[in-house]
């Protein structure tokens, strides 16, 4: 294989265009390296070369997700690269999400290997670590040299289709793929040694970490609920009759957004549930049992709440992964904020 051809994706900040005020910068492609790409090329030497750099503002990318993805993929395609690198994004949240999303899309569309780098607590890391190799970096751009040192060799391995070692050896964030290997000691001995460490209060590493869940800081209370605009969201799968967007009964790949402007009551004729995780008969008879539109409409009329938001968001929570659920919320919560919604009532079955 000749010199590996790489397209590099960075944001407006790393391209030296500007900070937050330039975050709506539209995708642009430049020949050769820009910004951190220089560091990469130095490290690659004769093995690989960044042939083009794509620059995109973080706000633009995240607010025009589908469009931005399509535009960037077109740009990448033209250069026919062997590999795509996004970032590193360090602890920049929206940059991280953009890097993860575009890397995932490029891999899927163009079938070439992709690589990104992020600080472990970057939300993009959690969202995309299972689909994209993400090198674990320091939490600020001061860690650039260090990040490139880890990313460059992994990039070459990926581009050449070589076997990728364990996360701790290669420096990437574990993707949650369980792989078998032969350890040096038998299991019983490992168990006894682990117990001894645990008894002594020393650090030990479990061989199978239990699935983990999130905690978030609670938002402050709503000051005056009678002035508040309230939106309904449900994981109970309530949809207009006929399930127009074909939301899956389990392991949903999408959510629906439907208008309830002027709707006072959900009836058997107009709404149903797409959810496969419970007996649907009760919800199909009266979807208010899952999504209380009737009551909130009454409360709105009585002035007990400010307004019921014109749209509700819905998906099926049955077997739908934490990661994809998060990405749904990531997208629609922005819309809710933009629409001036003050509070959300989320119902689950």
């Amino acid at each position: 294989m000749g010199k590996v051809r790489i397209v590099h994706y960075i944001n407006q900040f790393f391209a030296g265009i500007g900070g937050e005020e330039k975050a709506d910068y539209k995708p642009e492609v430049r020949e050769g390296v820009v910004g951190p790409g220089m560091e990469f090329n130095k490290k690659f030497g004769d093995d690989a070369e960044i042939v083009a750099t794509i620059i995109c503002g973080d706000s633009y990318f995240n607010e025009n997700l589908d469009e931005a993805k399509a535009e960037v993929i077109e740009m990448v395609k033209k250069y026919n690269p062997d590999l795509f690198i996004a970032g590193p994004a360090f602890n920049a949240g929206r940059y991280g999400v953009a890097c993860g999303a575009i890397a995932e899309a490029v891999e899927e569309e163009l079938k070439i290997p992709v690589l990104s780098g992020m600080y472990i607590e970057n939300p993009g890391a959690d969202m995309f670590k299972s689909s994209v190799y993400i090198v674990s970096t320091k939490n600020s751009a001061a860690g650039m040299r260090h990040a490139v040192k880890t990313m460059a060799p992994l990039a070459l391995k990926l581009a050449k289709g070589e076997a990728i070692g364990a996360p701790d050896a290669e420096g990437y964030i574990p993707r949650g793929i369980r792989k078998n290997y032969f350890a040096e000691k038998r299991g019983a001995q490992r168990a006894v040694e682990m117990l001894i460490k645990k008894l002594k209060g020393e650090t030990y590493i479990t061989e199978y970490p239990m699935p983990d869940f999130d905690r978030v800081e609670p938002n402050p209370a709503v000051k005056d609920i009678t002035k508040a605009k309230i939106a309904l969201v449900t994981s109970g799968g309530v949809v207009p009759k006929g399930n127009p967007d074909h939301i899956e009964a389990s392991s949903a790949s999408k959510y629906g957004k439907y208008s309830i402007a002027g709707v006072d009551d959900l009836t058997e004729e107009t709404y149903e549930t797409a959810h496969g995780g419970y007996d649907p008969i009760y919800c199909n008879q009266d979807s208010d049992r899952v999504l209380p539109v009737d009551v909130l409409r009454d409360l709105e009329k009585e002035g007990k709440i400010g307004k019921l938001h014109d749209f509700f968001y819905t998906t099926t929570g049955n077997g739908t992964g934490v990661k994809i659920s998060k990405s749904f919320a990531e997208t629609f919560s922005k819309e809710l904020v933009a629409d001036g919604v003050d509070a959300v009532v989320l119902t689950s079955t």
């Binding site: 709503v222 919800c283 009266d286 049992r289 009532v345 119902t347």
Partner: peptide, 30 residues
């Protein structure tokens, strides 16, 4: 299957029950 209802009740009773729960939720938001 019916977080905000109860098929054993009449429609009217059910709505009263649902309203109580929603009011509790609004209270929680405050």
């Amino acid at each position: 299957p019916y977080p905000l209802g109860d098929p054993k009740l009449t429609k009217e009773e059910e709505k009263v029950l649902r309203r109580k729960l929603v009011e509790k939720a609004l209270k929680a938001l405050e």
